[in-house]
Structures are given as C-alpha cells and as structure tokens.
Design a protein around this nucleic acid. Sequence first.
DNA 1: ATCCAGTACGTTTTT
DNA 2: CGTACTGGAT
Length: 745
Amino acid sequence: MPPTFDEIVASLTDAQREAVTQTDGPMLVLAGPGSGKTRVITCRIANLIHQGVRSHQILAITFTNKAAAEMKQRVAAMMPDQRIWISTFHSLGVRLLRQYADRLGLDRNFTIYDQSDRVGVVKAALKSAAIDVTRFTPETIQGAISKAKNKLLLPHQFEKQANDYFSQVVAQIYPVYEKKMRDANAVDFDDLLMWPALALTKDEEMRAELDARFRYVLVDEYQDTNKAQYEIARGLTIDHPNLCVVGDPDQSIYRWRGAELRNILDFERDYPNARVILLEENFRSTKAILRVADHLIAHNKKRKPKTLYTAKDEGSKVGALLFETGLEEADLVAQRIRQAVEAGKRHYRDFAILLRINALSRALESAFTRQRIPYQLVRGVAFFERKENRDVLAYLRLLLNPKDDLSFVRAVNEPARGIGKTSLEHLQKYAEPRELSLLAAAEHVDKIPAIRGKAVTGLKAFALMMAELRGVLEATPDEVMRQVIDRTGYRRMLKESDNPEDQERLANVEELITAAHQFHAEDESRTIADFLENITLASDVDGFDEKQDCVAVMTLHAAKGLEFPVVHMMALEQGILPHERSLMRDEELEEERRLAFVGITRAQEELYLSYARMREFRGQTLYAVPSMFLEELPQDGIETSDLSSSGGRTSPAVNTWRGSTAGASKGWYDTGFSDPKASREHERPEDDAPTGYEVGVMVHHDVYGVGCITEVSGQAALRKIKIRFSSGERSFLAAKAKLAIVQPT
DNA sequence: ATCCAGTACGTTTTT
DNA sequence: CGTACTGGAT
C-alpha cells in the first residue's frame, strides 16, 4: 500500500514541507546534494494538483529527459492520471517553435542540427563566403556562434561588439551560417532556446498568452541555466510570478556552455519578494563522505558558504588509491569491484565509475571485458553517431525536410551513385543563386549542362527515389526505417560488401529499425519525425538504465543528479581533474572543483579517489602529478593506499618534479622512455610465424559457427584471438580453440 | 569517380 | 593513439 499524499507530506522535514506547501509567489530553493530536491519538486507538483490547480497549468523544466521521465513517474505515483508538462528546456523550445512557427517565420518541419551538423554548416559557410581561415578551426567558430546565441546576440548585435580579430572573423561567418540554417529549414540546439526567449521578450501577445497558460512554473538545476533559459523562465512568470527554482550554486558545472551562476545568485533581486529555502540536510552520504565534499568545496572563493550535515553514520574512510599507471588503475579498480561482488557484499549495479573525460573509458572497457564484469558506458547518443546510422538518418531527415542540404550531401552518394565532388559542386553552383535546395536542383539536373555522364542518371534516380519514399512516411516508424534502408540500396551495399566491418554496420542499421519499433511501441501516436527529434535531443544519461545489474561508467557531468552506494572517481591528476584547460583561469578552476564536488557527493557509502603515477596519453607515457584537489581534502578524513606495482619504493617524491619542465603548467612530465609501442615491437616475434589468424579473417567454430576475427593479441601459447559471431563476441586462446579458417570464395 | 595510403591534426565537459 | 582530410594512383 503506497503512502497517501498526506503521509508523504508528514514525512518531510520542516524546510522541505515549506518548499512543498508554499505554492504561490516566487521561491528559490537552495538544495545541497542529496537533500531531497527531486522529492520536493514532485511533492510540490502533487500538492498543486491536490489544491485544485489544473495539471495543464503546471510546467516543470528539468535538465535531461531522464530527469523529466523520472519526475513524471514519481508524480504519477502520487497523482495518477494527470498530464503535467514536464520536459527539458530544449524539448519545451521545440514545442513552442513548432506551435508558433508561423509567427516566428519558421517552417514547421524544421530539422534540428546537432553540433557535428553545425560544424558542417560552418565549413560550408566558410566555403561559400570564400573565407579562408587557417587560424581557427570550424569547431572553434561554431563554439563562438553558440556562445553568442546563448547570450541572445543576433549576428548584427554580435558584430557591433566584436573587438578582437577572432570575434571579427566569427562576426563575418555568423550571418552566413544563419542564412544557411534558414535556407536548410534547420535550427540548432541554441535556436531552440534563443527563438522562444527572443519571442517572449519581444512579442508581448505571445508572452502573455503563455504566461497565462502556465500558472505554475518549476525549474530544476537552475544554477545551470544560461541567459536564454533565464529569459524563458522570466517571460513565463511576469503576470503569474509563481516561479519555483531549485538548484545548488556549488553544483554549477556548465559555465562553458553559457550557464550563468548569476541567474541563481540574483534570483532575489529579480523577484524581490521571493521566499528562500535552504535544504542543507543530506540524506544520501555518510558523514565521512560529506565532510570530504564540504572541505573541498570550501576552497572556492566565489561562493556563498553553506553547511551540509547528515544524520547518517560516520561510515568508512574515503580511500585515496595510488596506482603505477592508468592501465593498472583500471585493472585493479575493476578487480576490487569484482571481488566485492564475488564476496557477496555488493551487486555490480552498486558501483559507478566517474571520469572527467570520455577518453579514460577505454582502459576501463578493456579491463571490464577481460575480467568479464558487466558494465554500461553511459554515452547514449554514441550509437546514433556511427557513420552508418548517420547516413540512414540523413535519408530520413531529407525526406522530412527536403531543404536539408547537409543531409542531401551526406546521403546522395552513399551508396555510390556516381555523384562525385565535381558534380556536387556544379549542383551547388546551380542551386545557390536560384535559392533552390540541392534536392530541388537535382530534379532539374537536365538544365545543368555542366553535369554529365553517370552523375546525371544518378541524380535523377536519387530525386525520383526520394519522391517515392516520401509516400512511405505515413507508415509506422520502424516500417519507414526498413523501407529507407532497403529502397535506398543501403542494405544491399553493406550486405554485398566483402569488408567484414560492414556486417557489423548492417547489424547497427538494423538495430535502428528495432529502436524505431520500440519507440513506437511505447506510444503509438509517435511518428518517425518524433523519433528523429528524440534522438537529437537525447542526452548521454538518458540511455542509462539503473535497473541493469552492471557497473556504470560515465563522465562527471553525466553523473549529476544520480547516486550510487560505491563511487570510484578516477584519474585525479593535474591536467585531467582539474583539466589542463581550466588551470589558467580561477573561475574555470573553481568549476573543476565543483565538478569534483558533484562526483564526491554521488557516493552513498563508499568513495574512492584514484590516481596513477604515469598515464599513457596520446601515444606516450607521461608522469602525472596528483590532483591539487587531493591536497584540499581533510587529511584525517581520507586513507591513502599505495597500490602501485612498485609499492612506492622506487618513486621519487612528487614535489621534486613540480615546476621544473615545460610540461609543468599542464601537469605532465615526460617519463623519459618512449611509447609502449616501441617496446611491444621488440616482443613481437609472433609476426614471423604467421598462424593465418589475422583481423578480418573469417573462421568457423564448431559451436558458434562462422565468425570474423576482430582482434589478435599475445604471442605463442598465449596468443588470443577475439571473434565476432552473429551471437556475439568471444575470445579464445588460438592454440586451443577448435577453429578452421574459412577460405573466401 | 573512387579508392587508398599517407599525413596532419587535435582532444573537456553536452542539450 | 585515433580520426579526418588530402593528394595521389587507378
């Protein structure tokens, strides 16, 4: 029997209850980590409904789709059958843009470009504006445009305040970029916030309409809102200032993305009669963990101090673990996890490994695979970023939005249709002055004399095929996907390829059909367009499934809002955490410290901070300097163990390396020995005695059938090979496995 | 037009 | 170390 609403309210602390029951007027909830923030928000929503507020008058905004889904579920548990609008800022933006498309001068079928699409647009803009900048990468320029948009600066406004050379270059490209976006009927992530924000500040009629519609607005993770998001929240709550924002300045980790800590710090200025509630009691972590977190974050100067406390036990000491190398770190952390599970103390799902950068996950993946430890890498969108999947999705995007030139270029010659670089350039030259999309130009290919031969028939066939496929769009998402894969020839291309990697690509593309099917099965009203939108707006954590019994591996950013019994934070080394690019500026360094704080406060019972003496980086092994944050922890609160293979015997004191070489500022020191590849070269006599087992060779196994070798490692008796069968990947000792090489026919 | 091999290049974090 | 792009050969 679930508790009644009254029982739930009764179980809240005084501060929490006040945040839940004071529903009218502006409210700022400063919620420390683990202080029951989500509980407060969901109870507040439930309470509003309890008081008779209509569910469609409530808008709750979260940071990720996962958080939104969770919140919906928790509200539904208390107040069933209510349809409350809970979404991310970006999803809200999409809905507003589609709803008010006419008013904003947008076509309703716009495509949402992700960052890699945007880089493509910048490249195209550079090309068509004939600007040749070798000094700045398209990525950097894209980043600057993104920043401008976060600040709600349109091209002409940006130009006015472009003082340095870089900004002036960006100012030249920004309007071209915008033109291309409009021509392609595309919007980027920032547009999803910028357009609604500008509309709310400029179109009073629209603003008042929306303000009246959303009587109660709640914003989670308010410390991470940027100017555009601020204006959206503000614009919706002028006539009905029932805005409740929840956040923690100490957990602000998106400054680089335009987040303005000022938004939360100045809330009381914007809403002078705001009620401020502090949630300082932590219900998540042990005293030992909380003390470490508190001590660390106290080193930030630009900060409002607050006291964190918990009624929980002291718990075990926080462990600082030193390893010899990054590889050992991964191996031994994996081993510790496995031993705890095998001893029956823990489940795999109790563990999380938190990393500053994604690149660190490689070593872990290999350690987990070797030790047969189940894990999930929380990097949800990676699957859709594979070339083959992007290709297929490009077809779909082009079908839904024929003006999407970027997708046209991507799809038109994959599989090959004889349309090369020169033909495409001719097509572009024809289309641009005529304000035609590339697809429309392809339909007129007869009028373009410069295009000849195979390219003519190829373009015609492509245009015709797209026209035919457009008729399929009404089918279910999975059926549309299947038709696209089949009728574009994409499946055939992969199937007939003799490159073994293409068989995996085929499997991935087929997985898209399954994904579309599942998407539809969850809610039958969803279309293929919804599917595409969902993919582009998905965040990394969205794919994380805490019910699966495996170790979670993710970045510190992705971990925000989650909690785990045991947390391992890895690579606490200068240059990684804090990241080398933050070392120059105090504000960025403080953000790194907050990032560490977020990581530490994810832990409920046990926390381990690990680092290594040496770390392989970009092919060479460098000495690492322990993170300055380790020195900022209460020394009596942590227990340091040297688990390195040398046991600390041979290593000189870390301090003797400091500040001597050029690498000092970055925190890296050359170890003086060359990269491991060189030494591996010595011990590779196995290449002289070929066994026929090479990557790409097809083999037959008595049990698993035919598979393809994906990896060969080790030598002689220890030579191992990894084989991918249709049933999955398996490793064998080459000497023992009953394998026969299948001769290609 | 296409393919491949060689090189240049860069690497935080993400909706 | 890996990928992405360029320039050469076919």
